[in-house]
Every structure is written in structure tokens, then in C-alpha cells.
Nucleic acid binder design. Structure first.
Lengths: 243, 243
DNA sequence: AAAATAGTGTCTTTCAGACAATATTAG
DNA sequence: CTAATATTGTCTGAAAGACACTATTTT
């Protein structure tokens, strides 16, 4: 009675992760080198098939994050990007992959003898310059992940997920500059950030040295929605009534 | 060699549609009444299982749009919302649903003896007021679809997808007001719209009567990205340094 | 004429961006 | 001291929102 009328075709479900971080002011993505045959030896996003039929999608993403990237879910942003299911994307059969975007603070190389051997941070620039080819449709998934991060920086407090527990306003600015690929005026940025209630809160009156005047340290504030928003400067490619 | 190591669990893949339109200045969604047992008799989003293992996800969405809603893909916006795959969401087994958002211009009731019998436009308000309960997790999917539409109105030309071939600026304003749930000043709206290059273009100097001075008719322009954007007025619930 | 809707002009406040100036550290 | 970075102040032009006003129709 509660059965399915005509037996629809089963598919295999995978989870792929776009894990972004900032290393020396450059946007990096975690890639693994594939050890088995479809695209063997090529770089790919971390991911894998569902463990069992009862595993939740988000839980599977967390598991892959732990297994393949050796990253714990503590203080880490994780959200769904979407489903990628073009019929020919995996030669082994019909595989639909649900992609997730993860943002991590700057971390050391995951190499060593951990579970995550073979995983390494790669500059995003290397991928979209074409110098590094990805397996499957992972280049598209990565592009979608970056675009999602870009737009979410405008109206959400996502940027703090790139930072450690405490951070300076200049560090926060580096996040915006790296993800957006633009330069921002430090003075205007400073005032703008300070003008968003609840975005960041002072963390003791501590400091940190870099060569000039020490900067105040902050931590994430309670507000997750940014108002007023930080608008990404218009790319010079768009329309405009240029005189 | 190119086989899958340990046989991951297969899942059933479905496609669900959030089809939005405007009817008498109110946001409506197309719902069907379920004829079979899981949630039989309850309202649900149109959708269904993948036809065969080679069917593309977007193609399946188009097919369901045709079969269940009797809508052709001509001049109709269709984009993916995401995957919904919580383990318990369908009692028949592990079903992962990929949801799509469709925007249609105001259309007559789909009833009659068509394929789409049992489908009907329902005011969105009836659903999120709790007066109308949906099957599965469709209430969440609908909410996500509406939120997506709301944010896309700001920076894309999506609003014109709610209108017919030609439309007045006042009609366009009704779209924004209905989707955002706000009131806008007609005069400022008029100037703002006219100030976005390529958004709308005059369609002949025709007119249309409603009781007052006739309005110019427009059609969609070539621009899909709106600059400057139309920002949704801040909801009174957010933060603010109110004196 | 009165009512209704379309479209224009203008003013005020707010905000983004440019950039001078000051503060506080290291070397 | 000089170099470097952090933080504050000021100015200007663009844009948002309020709202008076004009234009063109129906009744």
C-alpha cells in the first residue's frame, strides 16, 4: 500500500566538499589526489559516498570533513551548495553528488601520517587559471562554492569563519580582499565594520605585533546578519552609464 | 578496476517544484493533492521520481513542470534550490529530493481535464499562516524557495518572470511588493527602475486602461544583472541603532 | 469637475569612497 | 629619528526616502 508505483531507478549518492581557507592572504581550497581509477591521479574535492542508507546528508559531510580533511566541526561553517547530477558526470554509473561549502580558519598542512594524507591546500588561483585540472565536474562545483562565499560575505558574518578565535580588523579585511579579489581602503573598511552592530566585539584590550602600532583584537559578535551590508564593489565589467 | 569499492547504499531520487506566481497581487504557489498513501489527501509540491537512470535533473524538473503543472518552459525561470535528504522524510525509504524554483507569469487555474487536474494555485499566506499543512518537508522547501526569490529580486531581473510579455512599471512594483511583503513608494520605484540600464525597455508607446492615466508598456531588457541593485527595505525586526 | 493613476522635480538624510591627519609601536 | 601599521576626522558625490507637483485618463 505505501509502496512506490513503478520502481524508479536507484542512484548512488555522494557528498563533495568545497573547503576554503586563507593562507598568506590567498584563498586556498583543500584538494585530494585520487587514488582509484575514475580520474586516477587527478586532483579532486574531498568527498565520498553515503555510508549507509540512514546517514543524513549533513552528517555525511561532517564525516568526510573529519575523514578526508582531518577537520573538526568546531567553529566551522558548513552549508549546502546544491546537487550535481548530470548523467555522464561519473563513468561508474548514475552518481548524484550533494556539494557542501565549508569555511575553515587558516590551518597547517594536513599532510603527515594522518587520515588526510594526500590532501593539501591549493591556491584557488591555480585552479581557475587552468593550471590545475580537477576531476569530474569539480571545477564547476568549486566555482559555485566561491561564488556562494562571495555573496555571503556581503550580508552574513561568514568572514569571521576564515579567522581564528580572535582577529584584528586588518585580518578581517584580508578575508574580504582575498575572497572578493579586490582591494579595499583600510580606513573606510575600519569604520564600516565598526558601524555594524554585533558583528565583532572587542576581545580584551590585547594586542599583537606586526611592525607598527598594535591593533585591537576582536572576536565574533552575536549578529549573523550584517546590517548595513558590506557591498562588494561593482566589477568593472558590468554596465554603467560611464560619461 | 573502475568499480565502486564497497557498494554504497542506493537511494531514490525525486524532483520537487516550487512554482510561484502572482494572482491578484498575492503570491501563490502551485500545489497538488496527493492521491496515494504517504500523506494521502494532503497538499504537496508538484514533483516525482526520476524517470530513468539517464534523465538529467533539470530535464526531470522540466518534465514534471509539463506533466503536473501543464506549464511549458517558454519564458519561465527555473533554477535549482538544493537537495533535501533527511533520512526520515519519506516513509517509503531513502528518498532524496532535488528541489527547483520556478517562476511563472499570472495564469488561469490549471484545473480542467488536463494532466494537471488536482493542481491548484494556493496563496502562500495560507501555508505559512499554518492554515494549510504540506506533505513531507515541503513546507521547508517552499520557505527556502520564497527566500531565494526574495533575495534574487534584488540583483537579478527575476521579477519580470512574474509578468507577461509586456507590463507596466506599476505591475512590476506589485511583484516586488507581493514577494517582499512590503509597500514601496510608486514614485521612487518608478525612478529607480528607470535608472537601471537594460532592465526594461519600452514596448511600443501602447497603453492599458485602469481608471487613471494610461501607463507605458515595457518588456524585459537584455540585462539580467541589476545595477544599481534594488535593495529590499530592512525588516523592522533587525538590529538598528534606534535613538 | 472629481477621482484615479502615471510620471517629474526637489529636498534632506544617509552612505560610500577619497584622502589628510593623528597615534603607537619596532628598529 | 624613520618606517610601518592602526585609528580618527573631514570632505564630496551618489543614492534612498519623503513628498509636492504636474499630466492624462475615466466617470
Amino acid at each position: 500500500m505505501s509502496d512506490i508505483p513503478w520502481s524508479p531507478p536507484p542512484v548512488l549518492l555522494a557528498v563533495d566538499l568545497v573547503i576554503l581557507t586563507l593562507r598568506s592572504a590567498q584563498l586556498h581550497v583543500l584538494l585530494v589526489e585520487r587514488g582509484i581509477d575514475p580520474h586516477k591521479g587527478r586532483h579532486a574535492l574531498p568527498g565520498g559516498f553515503l555510508n549507509n542508507a540512514d546517514e543524513d546528508l549533513l552528517a555525511a559531510a561532517h564525516r568526510e570533513l573529519r575523514e578526508e580533511a582531518n577537520l573538526d566541526a568546531t567553529h566551522l561553517h558548513l552549508e549546502q551548495l546544491g546537487a550535481y547530477g548530470a548523467p555522464g558526470r561519473d563513468p561508474r554509473g548514475r552518481v548524484v553528488s550533494v556539494a557542501y561549502l565549508a569555511i575553515a580558519p587558516g590551518l597547517p598542512e594536513p599532510e603527515a601520517g594522518t587520515d588526510a594524507a594526500g590532501a593539501a591546500w591549493r591556491p584557488v588561483r591555480d585552479v581557475d587559471s587552468g593550471g590545475l585540472e580537477l576531476a569530474f565536474d569539480h571545477r564547476q562545483i568549486l566555482a559555485d562554492g566561491i561564488e556562494r562565499a562571495r555573496t555571503k560575505l556581503e550580508k552574513s558574518a561568514l568572514a569571521t569563519a576564515f579567522c581564528g578565535e580572535t582577529f584584528t580588523i586588518a585580518e578581517l579585511q584580508q578575508v574580504y580582499e582575498a575572497v572578493w579579489g579586490t582591494r579595499l581602503d583600510p580606513r573606510n573598511f575600519y569604520r564600516k565594520i565598526q558601524g555594524i552592530p554585533g558583528f565583532i566585539v572587542p576581545a580584551g584590550s590585547e594586542r599583537r605585533t606586526t611592525g607598527g602600532r598594535p591593533a585591537q583584537l576582536f572576536r565574533r559578535g552575536p549578529q549573523t546578519v550584517l546590517f548595513p551590508p558590506l557591498n562588494r564593489p561593482p566589477s568593472p565589467s558590468v554596465n554603467r552609464t560611464d560619461p
